[in-house]
Amino acid sequence: MNNIALGRYLPLDSIVHKMDPRYKLVAMLVLMVAIFFPSGYIGYAIIGSFVLFSLLLAKLNIKMILRAMKPMLFMLVFLTFVNTLVLRTGYVLIDLFGFKVYSDAIFQTLYITIRLLLMIMVTTILTASTKPLDLTLAIEDLFSPLKRFGFPAHEIAMMISIALRFIPTLIDETNRIMKAQASRGVDLKEGTFKEKIMAILSLIVPLFVSSFQRAEELADAMEARGYIPSAKRTRYKQLKHTMKDWVMMFCVICVLGSVIWISL
């Protein structure tokens, strides 16, 4: 439970951490679009080198990214399996007693692996270098032009930030209840099917009960302090963009441009 590397903020002191979250968010979206362009290995080399460079700038560890990849491992194995069965183009790479593995199957899998790796890297850089609350501020800001058409930008940002705020709390709570039930003889690893169902139930029911209770308390506390979603409010934290944000934006757009140019 404590080893969730994906999507966790790491309080480091780097230039990427200090960038404007709005720009970072847009840059991530642009890079995502670039990753999805069929630009071949050259395109991925360009994106990859840019992403690696930002990773270093953000003072993040490559090991951490690889850890984040771990849950994907099963998917990749499955993908390799299906690909070797289905894809029958290119030249024969391995011939196992008449069962032929074609080159395209391997390359296709490799290609998707790189794509996944790049996507995870990009999102990890964003989430590891940006506080969740700054991220929601950025979302609110980016959506604020839509307010004119009745789009509830603030409400959505508030909901997201509350949800994010309670993820660690819920993880703690889950750990606590798991331990408490383990003390009552619950064993999530062993046991018959019926026992396992019971074990999961003994975890989920208390979790739901306390979540609902917490939600109610939070709502009461907000109301007691006069929270009105539609009220006009000022912010303590003002988002400011500087030169480095523009430089980053320019680089990202260059990356997208070259990727588009390659795939044409």
Partner: peptide, 30 residues
């Protein structure tokens, strides 16, 4: 764990069964 029973802080959050008796029986049955 059968020989060392641990009661957590605010243990009331671990209750989940339909009836009180069933909830207390949960440990022994495990």
């Amino acid at each position: 764990r059968q020989r060392v029973g641990l009661v957590f802080q605010f243990p009331e959050y671990q209750l989940f069964e339909e009836t009180i008796l069933k909830d207390v029986m949960f440990g022994p049955l495990n």
